[in-house]
Amino acid sequence: MGHDHDHDHDGEGTAYSSLSPMDARVRALETLLTERGLVDRAALDAVVERYEKEVGPHNGAQVVAKAWAEPDYRRWLLEDADAAIASLGHVGRQGEHMVAVENTPERHNMVVCTLCSCYPWPVLGLPPVWYKSPAYRSKAVIDPRGVLADFGVTLPQDMQIKVWDSTAEVRYLVVPMRPEGTEGLSQEQLTALVTRDSMIGTGLARAPHEVSA
């Protein structure tokens, strides 16, 4: 039993029960922290709940849907994304500047961060792992069409693809094109069409029939 102590520390220990090593380890941390009165189940559940439901791409999707539905808001968003986004209550960190870039039939926008993995958390929630992978970061700049193909997106050959490199100061939000056949939809219904990937530019907004009611 004792022989695997040392290299066990990173959680790679042998699974000698039905619990995975990491599962057991994290349960152990919770037990210890609960015993010491530092955490309790209700508080943990509340955190998970709010990260999964409250944030996430929902905030950004709401921004995009509003821009689709309201020409004045769209103009404001493109001119002053910080203020337009803040008006919906989604406030980023101080000094972080948001810029909204709009997809058009002529130009598709895609966001990358080649230096680190700057990501507009308050509007897009928790970023996907691939966003920070060296593969995505380098390939997005060199071969954006190839990256889009990896994501299953094919754009017309004559459509320009503009790649925006985020910095610590400026973060981009892609406003995807409003899908066809959505004229009669409410803003709430439109919101459901806006995916996280469509706001990074590695995807398109979903068509109404792609959203299961």
Partner: peptide
Amino acid sequence: PGAGAGDEVFAEPWQAQVFAM
């Protein structure tokens, strides 16, 4: 790359737990 928008933020429950802690 290629995963859809419906990706779970946390791949397994323990990830959410350790994050929440």
